[in-house]
Write a protein that binds this DNA or RNA. Sequence first.
DNA 1: AAGCCTCTTTGACCCAGATCAAGCGCGAAC
DNA 2: GTTCGCGCTTGATCTGGGTCAAAGAGGCTT
Lengths: 248, 248
Amino acid sequence: MLKEISLPSPHDCSDCPIRHRAVCARCDADELEHLDKIKYYRSFEAGQTVVWSGDPMDFVGSVVSGIATLTQTMEDGRTQMVGLLLPSDFVGRPGRDGSAYDVVATTDLVMCCFRKKPFEKMMLETPHIAQRLLEMTLDELDAAREWMLVLGRKTAREKIASLLSIIARRDATLHLRPAQGKVVFDLPLTREAMADYLGLTLETVSRQISALKRDGVIQLEGKRHVTVPDLDRLMDEAGDDSDGGVFA
Amino acid sequence: MLKEISLPSPHDCSDCPIRHRAVCARCDADELEHLDKIKYYRSFEAGQTVVWSGDPMDFVGSVVSGIATLTQTMEDGRTQMVGLLLPSDFVGRPGRDGSAYDVVATTDLVMCCFRKKPFEKMMLETPHIAQRLLEMTLDELDAAREWMLVLGRKTAREKIASLLSIIARRDATLHLRPAQGKVVFDLPLTREAMADYLGLTLETVSRQISALKRDGVIQLEGKRHVTVPDLDRLMDEAGDDSDGGVFA
DNA sequence: AAGCCTCTTTGACCCAGATCAAGCGCGAAC
DNA sequence: GTTCGCGCTTGATCTGGGTCAAAGAGGCTT
């Protein structure tokens, strides 16, 4: 198994890239100082498991950079990804000891962790944190429900288009580019991970990506670098009428 | 369209059947009194729509009795149920004007509604409410993710068994009976609603129910009255290893 | 630069579940 | 008591996506 990387230099909340979106978004200077005392950074290599389902977790935290996945596995090995954790997303559940899912780093990953007990205590005393966490949890619930429609009712082609448009829009907002017209990005997931997210096999994922390429909906350079000439076209293929905004 | 029924007699929080499970579970007497001022009851007939997706909602609230569903619909009519609302479950999202889903009463339904604006104000001032809502939202998120595994990876037979065992366990806990051995209950959903929940067609639902009956996993009296001779057997068929507890 | 290893693509075939189509059973309306 | 309508079942057939199998394409190691 891979070794955990130690972070070269711990940094300060004031220049934290996720300062304004994470669970600490609403905190004032005093509260940040308090958080600072219970926080620490951890880094993981791509492919490393952050927590195993069922294992005790003595921390909660935020993704600072990189991407992690939340997956559930059945005894016979069938797996379903139930969440994609992007920078600023929260990991762990206050008031619960074990993790309900496997959390795996898909890319190199940096997390800002809080020791669980002190964090829980602080949540009770600091409405700003509890409020922000509620808001984030409600957003995740909406995203999960949006995904239930994808899993339950969409065709393979629509599923792929849905995933690509989510990534494309997320990337556009992250880089403050307009979320329409031409979008270019790198796929952060392998075909297998995409299959696990979409409830498909990796062969079907591959075939449908080839089909979308053949039909000019996307262009591919290598296996991962994607160009979407017309985001509206892609979103049409996804079957949702413009709305969307799952991981907004 | 059906008419809304007016409730014969509004009742008091102290003898409310969902007092200890709903969003108000942690409230003390003062807080309940405050809530009482902004609350009102509404009743709906089976089949009636409580809110349409996209429509403005000027209230949030709790299901007091009956069952409601949360569904999403695509332009071409494909629909996916994304939530099953049982007594004590919360409806609506503080801080959002419109409903993201259709909310439909599956049975006759009574709701305890709070005017939205005052409720939002009260949430900011009353940690007990925000804390309980966070807890409930986290539970719903877990349930939604559990359901993603069902939708994405389970076979039709496993899907049916999963739904039946959820209903059976919920019913058992609601009536304080042991959640194992023999369980008897009524299906609160039509075959079509089950299909919408499971991402199947109603024909497949019907066939798989017949198959489970033929195999002795369940017994049916009429279309809706179900006897599960051995809950463990049913849960085996659902494919999850004992754990479960989605709507616990 | 040869050999591996992992990720990916593509082909051939198969099957679970969708679709299309009757028909049943039971309560409500006339 | 007959008819209507709705919810449900069952059969026949079709098909999207799964399964099994082979091979290409980079990137790393030695």
